[in-house]
């Protein structure tokens, strides 16, 4: 089976970070990554377990790849000024109209960047702790 996580670092980063990959490869050439960014992408096969991409077992790689796929199935939108959800409880910053937000099946919303970072560690809603995969399945069955 193809290995979608190992291999060239630039490719891994492009999967996860999009356009930032260019910046990372530049820092790779210089050999001096900025202190706040890991030179090798780090993944979280389970909460509290962080591992550089090149040390993941095959099982963990499959789990992470599936996770990334599931996250992409969660709807996103731009914040419409809805009064019920005023702030992203992860970064504690108030939503601005037009902010990129992601909707979890439990209808809690977060900034896309904030929630994606968390979901890669733990596939639960930070507010109600509902497991996202179970809820996703239920919502598919219902519709």
């Amino acid at each position: 089976m193809g290995n979608c996580l190992k291999g060239s670092a630039a490719d891994d980063i492009s999967l996860l970070r999009g356009s930032e990959s260019a910046g990372d490869s530049v820092s790779d050439h210089l050999g001096l990554p900025p202190p706040y960014r890991e030179a090798v992408p780090v993944y979280y096969p389970s909460p509290n377990i962080s591992r550089p991409v090149n040390q993941l077992t095959e099982e963990e790689q499959v789990k992470i790849a599936k996770r990334m796929g599931l996250i992409q199935h969660l709807p996103t939108g731009s914040y419409d000024g809805c009064k019920k959800n005023r702030e992203c409880v992860i970064c504690m910053v108030e939503f601005l109209v037009g902010d990129n937000v992601r909707y979890l099946p439990c209808m809690h919303i977060y900034h896309v960047n904030c929630i994606d970072d968390w979901l890669m560690r733990s596939f639960t809603c930070p507010s109600c702790m509902e497991p996202v995969d179970a809820a996703l399945l239920t919502s598919y069955e219902a519709s």
């Binding site: 909460p47 509290n48 409880v89 992860i90 504690m92 904030c114 968390w118 639960t124 930070p126 507010s127 702790m129």
Partner: peptide
């Protein structure tokens, strides 16, 4: 403080 941590906690 460990395994049941959530980023929504403050």
């Amino acid at each position: 403080l460990t395994e049941d941590w959530s980023p929504a906690l403050s």
